[in-house]
Simulated assay, not measured.
Amino acid sequence: MTDHVILGKGQIGSTVAGLLAERGERVRVLSRSGGPSQPGIEHVKVDARDAAALTAATKGADVIYNCANPAGYHQWADEWPPMFAAILAAAKAHGAGLVNTGNLYVYGPVTAPMTERTPLKSPGHKGQIRIKMWNDAMALHDSGDLRFTEARGSDYFGPGALADAMLGERIVRPVVEGKGVSVLGDPDAPHSFTYIPDVARALIRLGGDDRAWGRPWHVPTAPAASQREMIDAMARLLGRGPVRVGRMPWWFLIHVVGIAAPAMKGMAETRHQWDGPYVMESQDFTDTFGDKPTDTDTALAETLEWWRRRLAA
């Protein structure tokens, strides 16, 4: 039986843990807060920035899935370097494969659909942090010290996605509640949205297939749709008419909201993702492993049902 260790218990880490437990695999979830263990899932409290503690907590791991993330953009510069160095050290110490949950920040502003061959040219601070993480891990992979791969998705949505997702508290909740919506950027620009269960399934697929190691993979993602199209689709699935869609000024988010929520100031660097087309392709994954993305209507229906249950409770 494979020993799976998952770092982080957010929406992606928790979904990975649940899917693996359903298969009868051995699963450990490591997080700063820990928690009560469940059938098939052991929870362990550990600070991933502590290399010695993390190496001890991951002993015996065959595959490590990094689904952890600093709490906010404003913490990336301080927290990612020691955390990722500790993760690399732990995987190397145990000879475990490391599957990293990535994103598209590494590419920076682009004018064409992003593929795994798009150059890593992000000029932004957060993108540069992610590029260094990739380069550090691949250096160990290329030297034979580590088996590494990374799953990259666009903006995540789905059950469990809250304030840290554009299609979460900001958009899905008001649609469910029958209210109007304020979006960032161009509401009609095509945008790729990646469904959280598809991310989890991709991570598991990569961790169990030797063809995965040594390169990035784009998570299977449905065809791009604008924010307005996603909002209209949700309204249709709820049996309602069109939703009023407004546009929140960037200055308000960064300079007003950012006072109370420092993480929002970091949105300035990713403004290009919302002001124009932001499209990724994931055909490599489907061609290699056979996995296809969940269709948008199904993904949105499952997301809406999760929100309805949450709000009813």
Rank of each mutant, 00 (worst) to 15 (best):
D291F: 06
L146N: 06
G97R: 15
D155T: 02
T58W: 10
A48C: 11
Y73T: 02
G127M: 06
R32S: 14
P277D: 11
A202N: 01
I231C: 09
V44M: 09
S37I: 01
A71P: 00
R240C: 02
T115H: 01
N135D: 13
L140E: 15
Q273K: 15
T115K: 01
A161I: 00
V256L: 12
F285R: 01
F84E: 13
Q227D: 09
D287Q: 15
F289D: 02
K59G: 01
G108Y: 12
I171L: 13
V183P: 09
T303M: 03
T296R: 15
P216G: 07
A57R: 06
G168L: 00
A137D: 12
K265W: 03
V199L: 10
R308D: 02
V16K: 03
F84I: 04
A165G: 04
R23W: 03
T294I: 02
N135V: 01
G207E: 04
Y105C: 05
D50V: 11
G35F: 10
A301H: 09
P36G: 11
M138A: 02
W251P: 00
D3N: 14
Q11L: 02
N100V: 09
E150P: 00
V29R: 12
R49T: 15
I12R: 00
A161V: 06
T2I: 14
T294C: 03
L120Y: 07
R28P: 06
V5K: 11
M166D: 14
K265V: 03
L300N: 03
G207D: 04
T55L: 06
P249F: 09
S154G: 05
I64S: 03
A200V: 11
A56D: 15
L20C: 04
M1N: 04
A313D: 14
M248C: 12
A161K: 00
L20S: 02
S122M: 11
G97F: 12
A222T: 07
N103A: 00
E177N: 14
A163V: 11
Q38A: 13
W250T: 04
R32D: 05
A222P: 05
A263Q: 14
G35L: 08
H255A: 12
D188I: 07
P119Y: 10
W134Q: 10
T2S: 13
A235P: 08
H191F: 06
F157C: 05
L206I: 08
L162A: 13
L54M: 07
A71Q: 13
L104V: 15
E116K: 14
V199D: 01
R211T: 13
I87R: 10
S192W: 06
L146W: 07
P293R: 12
D78T: 07
V176K: 03
D136W: 08
K121D: 05
A189F: 13
P197G: 10
V106H: 07
L162Q: 13
V176P: 05
V219I: 15
P174W: 10
T296D: 00
P262N: 01
P262L: 00
Y105W: 14
G144Y: 11
L238M: 15
S37C: 04
A312Y: 02
A260Y: 12
K121H: 10
G241Q: 09
A56C: 04
M230L: 14
G214L: 11
V63L: 04
A312W: 02
I171M: 14
Y195R: 12
I6Q: 01
G239W: 10
A61M: 08
G13I: 06
F193Y: 15
V63F: 03
F252E: 05
